[in-house]
């Protein structure tokens, strides 16, 4: 149990700081966004599991030789004696910390999902009142605004919606416009909003750790790459690159405060359009690494129990 706890703690530390820093700087995700997205999900899952797991196994070690029996014994002690043995203060603290961490993560996710859903519904109501349906494109609304804007709203209990502005229609030609619409539809079809919302909650839960902050910004970029790839397949590389550069290069009105992550993100997207995808073999290898990341902490948590049976 204590060995498993130490190994899980080591994994948790590795995944919390150095691994996300290295991955966020890597070049290959530009050429394999889907694989990179899978890897970030595996890192988040494995990181969360090993953080909670190392605390829980350390805290429950005095109660049994494996996690399942120890947890059962712990619950029995708590429910019958109403007190936790106070002989060792550290294990008790560790169990408390594990429970708090789980509650913190779950609550943050729940609050983020509820708030996002409410904000999106309000925004959808506003769009419905302030925009006209696009006569040429089904599921699309036209906003009467001079700034070139395009975004999508996932449908939660309603139809998904793409919103384009009058300024965008004036700025772009037919082909570029098709690229933008294909990009937004890819976000909707591939359910990217779920991914970005989950990682937003993850970052709000652990704001000081690269495992969450780097993951959040990388995932936001990767879903843009994925939507760009779908748009490129639909209309070709040139119109897509022109669309990104035209919208990005347009004089934007409004607050000019820029996110750090945005600083070179758009130039990077234009340049990326011409890149060839990563070959299959390295992508499979990365997929195997992602699977191993999830399997290893699971095995460390369960194997002592399995051996005992």
């Amino acid at each position: 149990m204590l060995l498993a706890s130490a190994l899980l703690a080591a994994l948790a530390v590795l995944l919390a700081v150095p691994v996300p820093i290295v991955l966020a700087r890597a070049e290959w995700p530009r050429r394999a966004p889907a694989t990179a997205l899978l890897l970030w999900q595996a890192i988040a899952l494995s990181g969360g599991l090993s953080m909670v797991g190392s605390l829980a196994t350390f805290g429950l070690a005095p109660f049994g030789d494996d996690l399942i029996h120890a947890a059962a014994r712990f619950l029995e002690v708590v429910s019958t004696e109403q007190t936790v043995p106070t002989a060792d203060v550290w294990p008790t603290l560790a169990v408390g910390a594990a429970a708090l961490l789980v509650a913190h993560l779950v609550l943050n996710l729940a609050v983020t999902v509820v708030v996002s859903t409410r904000e999106r519904r309000r925004h959808r109501d506003l769009v419905a009142l302030l925009s006209a349906p696009d006569p040429e494109r089904p599921g699309t609304r036209l906003l009467d605004d001079p700034a070139p804007l395009a975004y999508c709203l996932p449908g939660v209990g309603a139809l998904p919606m793409t919103v384009l502005s009058q300024g965008l229609l004036e700025l772009l030609g037919d082909e570029e416009l098709r690229a933008v619409v294909a990009h937004e539809r890819a976000h909707l079809a591939q359910r990217h909003a779920w991914m970005t919302t989950a990682f937003r909650a993850w970052r709000l839960s652990l704001p000081w750790f690269p495992i969450a902050s780097r993951a959040r910004s990388s995932v936001a970029t990767l879903v843009e790459y994925l939507a760009d790839d779908t748009a490129r397949a639909a209309v070709g590389a040139e119109p897509l690159a022109r669309a990104i550069a035209l919208v990005g290069g347009h004089d934007t009105t409004g607050p000019m405060e820029t996110r750090d992550a945005d600083r070179s993100a758009i130039l990077d997207r234009v340049r990326r359009v011409g890149l060839a995808p990563l070959p299959l073999a390295p992508r499979i290898l990365i997929g195997v690494v992602a699977a191993a990341l999830v399997v290893v902490p699971t095995v460390l948590l369960l194997v002592p129990a399995l051996l005992d049976l």
């Binding site: 996002s116 904000e119 999106r120 925004h123 804007l149 395009a150 975004y151 999508c152 709203l153 933008v180 990009h183 937004e184 976000h187 990217h192 909003a193 970005t196 919302t197 936001a220 879903v223 843009e224 669309a243 990104i244 550069a245 919208v247 990005g248 290069g249 347009h250 004089d251 934007t252 409004g254 607050p255 000019m256 405060e257 820029t258 996110r259 945005d262 600083r263 070179s264 993100a265 758009i266 130039l267 234009v270």
Partner: peptide, 17 residues
Amino acid sequence: VLERFVGQVSPAEADAL
């Protein structure tokens, strides 16, 4: 809660584009 096709860019980046 919204991700625009192209988000806010800095003036320098707009020039580069």
